[in-house]
Design a protein around this nucleic acid. Sequence first.
DNA 1: ACGGTAAGCTACAGCCGTGTACTTAAGCAA
DNA 2: TTGCTTAAGTACACGGCTGTAGCTTACCGT
Lengths: 200, 200
Amino acid sequence: MGDHNARTRRRGEELISAIHKAVLEEVAEVGVARLTMDGIGKRAATPRTTLYRRWSDPVEVLLDALHHLHPVEEPTPGADDLRGDLIRALRLMVDWMLSPAGRAVAAILTDPQRTPQISQALFERVFAERGGTFTSTVLRHYAERGHFPIELLTPVVADIGEALVTKRMIDAAVPPSDDDLAAIVEQAILPAIGLGRTSS
Amino acid sequence: MGDHNARTRRRGEELISAIHKAVLEEVAEVGVARLTMDGIGKRAATPRTTLYRRWSDPVEVLLDALHHLHPVEEPTPGADDLRGDLIRALRLMVDWMLSPAGRAVAAILTDPQRTPQISQALFERVFAERGGTFTSTVLRHYAERGHFPIELLTPVVADIGEALVTKRMIDAAVPPSDDDLAAIVEQAILPAIGLGRTSS
DNA sequence: ACGGTAAGCTACAGCCGTGTACTTAAGCAA
DNA sequence: TTGCTTAAGTACACGGCTGTAGCTTACCGT
């Protein structure tokens, strides 16, 4: 009795990817701490029993979802525009941080109770797939072409852009504009690789 | 009946500051999301009823604790050692981030469900009390004494050190060493104010 | 067409945090 | 000492999430 759902019953792949999508959204919204089977089930429109058939607790679902994440897009350095490519790399980063996947990762990384297991799953699955950080891909490209000495591309320098963007995202409610990103590139990254503000 | 606690019953100031201490520890450990009256009460060794007499929910207790936080120590620039003073400022920051108060603030700032009210309370109470960020206090001091043009001390530049330290604290399990901080100062901050690695 | 597999659905007991009511007892001041 | 104030301690009903059980029903391969 009762109206059967107009939507057809989902199975296998389709159902699972719907659940993965749901966990990521859920964790981005409420955080790892408030993650519940109930919440995931409601968001994915599936009963908890279906979840328990495959996973034993919310974090398992989350880890599984991370394992199926599509790798993050990498910046593709252009011909001869270091400054522009850096800004585009940071823009890519900002967009990713605003996406469900990015917000999920942020929620996980900053959870006070995160375990080494979770951190490890994250780094293996989400970051290791990529060549490196957003800006370091660009920086390496230009260093190899002699735009600046590759010795200057230290771990610290490779992190400058990401660090400043991250801080902006935490401090301010509004995501950084292109002008903000340009300021980061010009005032922090370029000086660090010996390309001061004078050399346009 | 039963053994009365050997400890004398606490009242007023003493009790409240014990509760404040407890909330900060609790939130640093479990995060804002998992904050409960029960947890606070257990940690402060006081029944929930006492908490409800003054506050209506765990976040209220937290906000009240923040209002009673001692201001963070400010770096005191020395005579003529910009590099050393910057490192000391970052060390001060790291130590604070490792303290209960600092970890509490981190937990609050990164909570996916933080409200504007909470952010505002934080900034007013914890940050506004200070002159500025850790490194900017030092940087301003040396800029005013002509060590570098003050126009270079932009908001982005003032954030470089804090941003890199924060990222390090999130990424790595181990807090940065003095060498790490020195690398940040030399490779990121000093270049940004026009004092490259050449000028020692 | 049929039967197996797996998803949808409901129900239930258990645990934990909540918020309140009420009693007991310690500290403090007149 | 007396009495007011306030914390300690106990008890209870409520609600949400949990994990499981048992059943119904849709999908899908043979």
